[in-house]
Simulated assay, not measured.
Amino acid sequence: MPITVVRDKTLPMRHIVHVRNHIVSADVSAEEGGSDAGPSPHDLYDAALSACKALTVLWYAKRKGIPVDDVQVTTQRDDTEERKGIYRLNATLHLSGELSDAQREELLSVAAKCPVHKLMTSVSTEVTTVLG
């Protein structure tokens, strides 16, 4: 499944990301020369982790019959040492429902095992870029 990114020439830096039948704007802040007309690539990276954790927890809870009413994930970025090779994401899992402490801890453990978390922390990603 290819992901295609096409420039939107109506704005200085905005691009349109096409994923299957979905469209997402990507841009950078005005300070970086853009119009802030969409999340930045870093925002999308961070959002992928948050979404994966939320979806994984909800999928697991439904499968195990754990009574989760709502799942929200708030992620804070600390990129102050990114140039030194350290990029920190602090995710907070917000759960609602009639959950025991043991169920809450179980779901917290599941959130740490989402596929994107594993990709970010356990897998060596190789990127190849060619001219088309």
Rank of each mutant, 00 (worst) to 15 (best):
V116S: 07
V24Y: 13
S100Q: 03
N90H: 08
R63E: 13
V68I: 08
Y60R: 01
T129N: 14
V24T: 13
A30E: 13
P41Q: 09
L108N: 15
R77F: 08
E81F: 03
A61L: 06
M13W: 00
V73W: 11
R83V: 12
S109C: 00
T80C: 12
G97V: 04
S40A: 15
V68Y: 03
R20H: 15
D27Y: 05
K53Y: 05
S109H: 09
A61R: 01
A111Y: 13
S100Y: 05
M13N: 01
L99F: 02
I3T: 15
T128P: 03
V123Y: 06
Y45K: 01
E98I: 03
N90I: 09
S50Y: 00
K62E: 15
E82G: 07
D36L: 13
S50H: 04
A54N: 07
L107S: 10
E82A: 15
D79H: 14
S124Y: 09
I3S: 10
G85W: 07
K113I: 00
R83Q: 12
N90A: 07
I23M: 13
T4G: 04
H42E: 15
Q76A: 15
S25R: 10
K9T: 08
T128C: 05
L55I: 11
P12V: 01
T10E: 13
M1L: 11
S40K: 11
A30H: 14
S109E: 10
Y45L: 15
I3R: 07
D43T: 14
V24R: 09
T121S: 07
L119W: 00
E81H: 12
A112V: 00
K84H: 13
H18V: 08
S109T: 05
A26Y: 02
S100R: 01
Y45I: 11
R20C: 11
V130S: 14
E32G: 14
P39K: 06
A111I: 04
P115F: 01
S122V: 05
E81N: 04
M13D: 01
T129C: 15
V110P: 00
T92E: 15
T92G: 11
Y87G: 05
S50W: 03
T10W: 01
P115S: 03
G132A: 15
M120A: 09
A26L: 07
V6M: 02
V19Q: 11
A112F: 02
D27F: 04
E81T: 10
D27E: 07
R88S: 04
M120V: 03
D43C: 14
V19H: 13
D69M: 07
A51F: 02
S35W: 02
P67F: 00
D46K: 10
L58R: 04
G85E: 09
L93E: 10
S122G: 14
V110C: 02
G34N: 04
D78Y: 09
H22E: 08
R83E: 15
T10G: 08
T128Y: 08
L107H: 09
V5R: 00
C52Y: 03
A51Y: 00
